[in-house]
Design a protein around this nucleic acid. Structure first.
Length: 329
DNA sequence: CGGTCAAA
DNA sequence: TTTGACCGG
């Protein structure tokens, strides 16, 4: 679901070709979840191989990644590590929603309500360890780098943008702004025309709202994050006004005569003092065509022709390196 | 979602 | 050249 910050965030519409040459740190969980929920048939059935393994995420990763590379964009995927203990309630809530959606999905299929079936099926999407492992394996075979975060992937991706190793975080969730990402990109897709691609600049959002980053985190604590519930009746605008008026979350809570289950400082620390991998290396390698075909076509029933034509698009990456290899190799 | 191909 | 229906696995 993510942080409900839409009302206090300004964005700039951009075109995909403005990202030419840029490195985008993609929130892997966020990206894979999108594929799992949307790459489905009309009745909601995901793509599957003959053994019944879900393959929607593999399709999404193969085609989107190769398409982005073809357009001159350099993707890095950042995977979540261990979830913070305080995320448990959010995770439990999501699981419950999934389970209810699954029941509704089956019911809609039985009753022949195809559109409802797809809607509920999308909500029932779940990310299994197999799906994560398969995604990582495919990225390795494609020669696309990925980073395994210690905790939140968004935190790691934000760190990488801050450090200058990536241009922006690619995600649908505003959480990365709390983690300090100077730039985030919303609605990234292979075909740019379908939904508008939005750039969001942290500095601009802070300036527009008259807040520091620490205060933006405090607004989030009032509104509610994946790690705490927030105060009833306080949305983004009300939260911002409270923090602007009172300075910080403690004073705002005192004014509201409200208390929180969790010490706000603990939530602050999640966003402001998170652990990151610092000695990662980012390298785009030549795809292993043979092994990719073995994995996708032999094991998961993908059309070999389609796999090959997707992989051919990856040749666009690092033409300089290729010529160096020709000289020195 | 992304690729393909037919129709506009 | 653009749009949309349809299929992939």
């Amino acid at each position: 679901m993510g942080l409900k910050f839409r009302d206090i965030v300004s964005s700039h519409e951009i075109k995909l070709d403005e990202l030419k040459g840029k490195t985008v740190a993609l929130d892997a969980a966020n990206t894979i979840y999108q594929f799992l929920s949307s790459i489905r048939q009309m009745d909601g059935t995901p793509l599957m191989d003959s053994q019944g393994n879900v393959t929607s995420h593999l399709s999404g990763i193969l085609y989107r990644t190769s398409s982005l590379v073809e357009k001159g964009i350099k993707p890095i995927y950042v995977f979540d590590g261990k979830a913070h203990i305080l995320k448990k309630d959010t995770q439990d809530g999501r699981r419950k929603i999934r389970e209810e959606a699954e029941v509704q999905w089956k019911k809609a299929v039985d009753e022949g309500r195809v559109e409802d079936a797809r809607k509920f099926a999308m909500r029932s999407s779940r990310m299994t360890p197999d799906i994560i492992e398969g995604s990582k394996k495919l990225l390795d075979l494609m020669g696309i780098p990925y980073i395994q975060a210690i905790s939140e992937g968004e935190a790691q991706a934000s760190y990488m943008v801050d450090k200058g190793d990536a241009w922006c975080v690619g995600s649908q969730d505003y959480d990365c702004m709390l983690f300090g990402a100077p730039r985030m990109l919303k609605n990234i897709a292979a075909r740019g025309s379908k939904s508008r691609l939005e750039m969001i600049y942290l500095d601009e959002v802070l300036e527009m709202n008259g807040l520091t980053r620490e205060q933006l985190v405090d607004v989030a604590v009032l509104v509610g994050t994946d790690f705490n519930e927030g105060i009833k009746g306080v949305g983004a605008k009300k939260g911002r006004n409270l923090i602007k008026k009172h300075g910080d979350v403690f004073k705002a809570l005192k004014h509201l005569k409200a208390e929180m289950d969790i010490d706000p400082q603990e939530i602050r620390d999640i966003f402001l003092n998170h652990d990151c991998i610092e000695d990662y290396d980012i390298k785009w390698n030549k795809p292993d065509k043979e092994e990719t075909i073995k994995f996708l076509s032999d094991e998961h029933d993908f059309s070999a022709d389609r796999v090959v034509s997707a992989l051919d698009k990856l040749k666009k990456l690092n033409p300089a390196q290729k010529s160096l290899e020709q000289w020195f190799g």
